[in-house]
């Protein structure tokens, strides 16, 4: 796996759309390509959070309670942003529901770089915030339980 390969994968991922070249270079320095086998646990609630995954292929399930998957994260999407917002602990479980191809970002190193380079930090945080608000809206919709048959 070359840095070139990682950088190309990053450039092709929607999460990185619009990032300056320099930022891509920085990310590439702290990223690696992964293939995760079906059933593999990426993280569990309570563990230390120090990575993010940009999913390229496959499906990861997020469970908040007793392994019940509430949402799947799929190709083109960001998995995990706790470290980016200063919370170094996972709040959910994540498990590969299929074989998953992903780019793993090293949170420890990137957090360090973001402190030194606020414009990079801003770009990453903004993207994470977008992913988080999307999750929030969908959770609200899901909480409505819109397909529940009332009065039946």
């Amino acid at each position: 796996m070359s840095t070139e390969e990682v950088r190309a994968a990053l450039a092709a991922h929607p999460f990185c759309q619009g990032l300056p070249e320099a930022a891509l270079d920085t990310l590439a320095g702290h990223a690696r390509l992964q293939v995760l086998a079906e059933g593999l646990t990426l993280f569990e609630a309570g563990e230390r959070s120090h990575a993010s995954w940009l999913i390229r292929e496959g499906r990861v399930g997020i469970a908040l309670h007793e392994l019940e998957v509430v949402e799947t994260v799929e190709a083109g999407e960001l998995l995990g942003w706790s470290w980016l917002i200063g919370q170094w602990q996972w709040h959910a479980d994540a498990r590969a529901l299929t074989e998953v191809h992903a780019i793993r970002l090293d949170g420890d190193a990137l957090a360090e770089r973001c402190r030194a380079e606020p414009s990079l930090g801003f770009e990453l945080a903004r993207r994470a915030l977008r992913a988080a608000t999307g999750r929030l809206e969908r959770s609200r919709l899901q909480a409505h339980d819109v397909f529940r048959v009332r009065g039946a």
Binding site: T72, E74, L97, L141
Partner: peptide, 12 residues
């Protein structure tokens, strides 16, 4: 084994 979540996600 399919997607879990609201249908708007499929639109995204």
């Amino acid at each position: 084994r399919g997607p879990i979540g609201v249908v708007t996600r499929l639109l995204e």
